[in-house]
Nucleic acid binder design. Structure first.
Length: 360
DNA sequence: GTATGCTTTCGGC
DNA sequence: TTACGGCCGAAAGCATAC
């Protein structure tokens, strides 16, 4: 079973402010550069009717909604996290195995408690929907299928507030007419290939030879797509124990390549990443800087640290060094936004782990 | 040749 | 007509180890 909370941030805002009910609601990330500079994080379904989508500039969303009484609200991420945590705990309690894949999505393995009976799985889904509405005033879209792939595609089939059940014997019939890009992992690049191959539906995709898959999509994606187009997937639902990375990114006051204008922000971002590592009890081994230039192109540079750390100073030093190197190697680059990322995380248990043993 | 690790890019929301 | 965020995980591409 796949559960997807409908335009989650927008629902959180509607619940926090009843004035928003019934209006188009646009949740915005303001960059602070000018009055309306920034992007749309998400929009409720009323706003989507006017063409407002995640990722578009706020100013464009305002134009699209200028004839209606719409609400533009700043994103409040800590609030969404808190609400999400309660919801995820509830969903986990309704499952045999649980896997949260984002702040608003999760897979629930309900095979045991339903004995693989899809009518019984429907009851679980209905109970989840009722409980979510009662306890958190939130709607969701649920997909039920014989595996994660089909559950995920099914949850996307009917939104918002949908429930789509695909029994094993109906899987091929369900998938066949769908556009091939509904398969997770088929993005822009794979889609271009599909056009070349004259493939638009999953059924057409499944008609390609195994060689055609590997030749066009590579061994990894190719064999995944071969199976996916047949509705096959054997991934298990499993808890994600540890995050893989923490990052902070922000927009500069003005476009620049001067160290005195970028370093203070880099320091702030590095400190924030370090604080989060410490707060959550992690150390990192690699540090990455993200550079977004005036043409909005995205670049990154990373390095592996000499030793694991969560301290502010080594992360800050690495970020400054990587930025300097990037600017030296790219004399025409002008920075618009910069970010700092810590990855290769390890949870520090306080117990003697192998690396401590070896250094001792 | 395969496994593993590191760096960079892609894509979803 | 343009406009433009802040996260995350996964994939791709390459190098190195065995």
């Amino acid at each position: 079973m796949h559960v997807d909370l409908d335009s989650f941030y927008a629902q959180c805002e509607e619940n926090a402010n009843p004035n928003l009910k019934g209006k188009p609601v646009v949740v915005c990330v303001y960059s602070g550069r000018t009055e309306d500079s920034g992007a749309v994080s998400t929009a409720n379904y009323q706003a989507r009717k006017y063409g407002v989508r995640a990722g578009i500039p706020i100013i464009r969303a305002k134009k699209l909604l200028e004839t209606v009484d719409a609400a533009f609200v700043p994103m409040n991420h800590p609030r969404y996290e808190e609400i999400s945590e309660r919801i995820m705990d509830m969903l986990r309690s309704q499952s045999d195995a649980f896997e949260q894949t984002s702040i608003d999505e999760a897979f629930l393995d309900v095979s045991k408690r339903t004995g693989m009976n899809f009518e019984s799985a429907r009851d679980v889904a209905v109970e989840i929907k009722e409980q979510l509405l009662r306890q958190e005033h939130v709607t969701c879209s649920i997909g039920i299928g014989p595996n994660k792939l089909i559950a995920k595609i099914a949850s996307d089939q009917s939104k918002p507030n949908g429930l789509t059940i695909v029994k094993p014997e109906d899987a091929i019939t369900f998938l066949s007419p769908l556009p091939a890009n509904r398969i997770p992992g088929v993005g822009k690049k794979a889609e271009e290939k599909l056009i070349q191959l004259n493939v638009s539906t999953v059924a057409e995709l499944s008609g390609l030879s195994p060689n055609t898959f590997v030749e066009n999509f590579g061994k990894s994606l190719g064999s995944y797509l071969y199976r996916a187009s047949r509705g096959e997937d054997d991934e298990h639902v499993k808890e994600r124990e540890q995050p893989a990375q923490f990052s902070r990114i922000a927009t500069l006051k003005q476009n620049t390549r001067l160290p005195e204008e970028t370093f203070p922000l880099l320091t702030e971002l590095a400190y924030s990443v370090s604080d989060k590592l410490k707060e959550q009890g992690f150390t990192c081994k690699s540090v990455t800087i993200i550079a977004i230039l005036t043409d909005l192109s995205i670049h990154s540079r990373s390095k592996t640290l000499e030793s694991r750390t969560s301290e502010r100073e080594p992360i800050e030093a690495a970020a400054k060094q990587l930025t300097q190197q990037f600017l030296r190697a790219n004399p025409d680059a002008i920075l618009r936004r910069v970010g700092v990322k810590a990855s290769t995380l390890t949870k520090e248990t306080g117990q003697t782990d192998i690396s401590k043993f070896l250094t001792a």
